[in-house]
Amino acid sequence: MTNSEKNRLKDKAFQVFGIFCTFIGLVVLAIFLIDIVIEGIGRIDWDFLTSLPSRRAARAGILTAWAGTLWILVLSALIAFPLGIAAGIYLEEYAKKTKLSDFLEINIANLAGVPSIIYGLLGLELFVRFMHLGPVLLVGALTLSLLILPIVIVTTREAIKAVPRTIRDGSFALGASKWQTVWNQVLPASFGGILTGVILALSRAVGEAAPLIVIGALAYVPFVPSSPMDEFTVLPIQIFNWTSRPQAAFLTNAAAAIIVLLLITFLLNGIAVYLRHRQQKKIKW
């Protein structure tokens, strides 16, 4: 075999290995999803979705867990959405390129890299102990909002950056002020992109368990929260709790709850992908 033939053979071999690697993760994912569905789908029925938690696996349901997850989803959106967009607008449209803005930028990049459990410690000390709010929905939502704030800010900036300079010039030239230009031109043109980012960030928040466990969210909450000041649990914590038990029946419950959690996550991601796609189709500069 000549050298060149050997080289070509190696090239082919790597190509096969490349395909293998590209699909291995997806295959593992598929095996896993199938396994979960087989184990859990039979457990999902109306009772499972509408029952309170119970010490007996067969009677336990996820009503409080998914209600808590929805509460967290809405509250986090209400907090992180305006805050993150406002910060993104400031950094992209108002801040002059100074040492201070460089510092803000590095700071946000750093916050994005802080492990979620550290945010839990922050929430525990700041909201639960210092402000005496207790381990309630509001605290959970505040904690997760801080966690996803960097993501919201970064995606807002990306979306705003994509709006051409000429649109701003056009608006200024007609006598519009900075804020009128941002409000009437920049935000409407970038809203799809911003919304996509926010939804992706929320889907991250919905899957988080660690920071909520640290602030003291309980695994066993025998009532559906009715206000932001109520104690709560969420689906990931319920899944964690059931997974930690030795009885097989609880693992089945966990698998069923995972199906519900994944549906919520995939739904949010699906909406985000759809919005991004629509935005790209709608506006071509």
Binding site: T22, L29, G207, A254, T265
Partner: peptide, 20 residues
Amino acid sequence: LLEVLATIPTVVYGFFALTV
């Protein structure tokens, strides 16, 4: 499709590690 791997909640991965 690969990004989907990063969107799955980690508690779900934990379940997978333990039971599969």
